[in-house]
Simulated assay, not measured.
Amino acid sequence: MFTGLVSAVGTVVSVAGEGDLRRVAIRAPYDPATIALGASIACAGPCLTAVSVEPAEGGCVFAVDAAAETLMRTTVGTWARGTRINLERSLRIGDELGGHLVTGHVDGLAEIVARESVTADAWGASERFTLRAPAALAKFIAEKGSVCLDGTSLTVNGVTGDRFTVLLIPHTLQVTTWGERQEGDRLNLEVDLIARYAARLAEARA
Rank of each mutant, 00 (worst) to 15 (best):
R186A: 04
L109I: 01
T83M: 11
G108N: 02
V166H: 03
Q174M: 02
K139D: 12
V51N: 01
D150T: 06
Q182H: 09
G124Y: 12
H171K: 04
T49P: 02
L101E: 10
R128H: 02
L193E: 11
W79C: 07
A114K: 04
G151I: 06
R132N: 06
L48R: 01
D95W: 11
L154Y: 03
V118D: 05
D192Q: 05
D107M: 03
R132Y: 04
S146D: 08
A135C: 05
V147D: 04
T74L: 06
E190P: 09
V175F: 05
L91F: 15
L187I: 05
E180P: 02
E111L: 01
A142E: 11
D162P: 02
L187C: 10
Q182P: 00
T70D: 07
G82V: 10
T152E: 01
V156K: 06
N157V: 02
R115K: 07
L193Y: 08
E96I: 10
T160A: 15
S90F: 05
G184I: 03
G99L: 12
A80V: 14
E96M: 12
T74P: 11
A63E: 14
E88H: 07
F164P: 04
I112V: 15
I141E: 09
S153D: 05
A66G: 10
G158N: 12
L137M: 12
E180G: 08
K139G: 14
G98Y: 06
A50P: 01
V147K: 02
A110P: 02
G161I: 08
H100K: 11
P134R: 09
V76P: 05
E190C: 04
P55L: 01
A56I: 00
V106F: 04
N157F: 01
A125Q: 15
V64W: 08
A50T: 00
G108D: 01
E57F: 02
T70V: 14
A135P: 08
G124F: 13
K139L: 07
H171N: 00
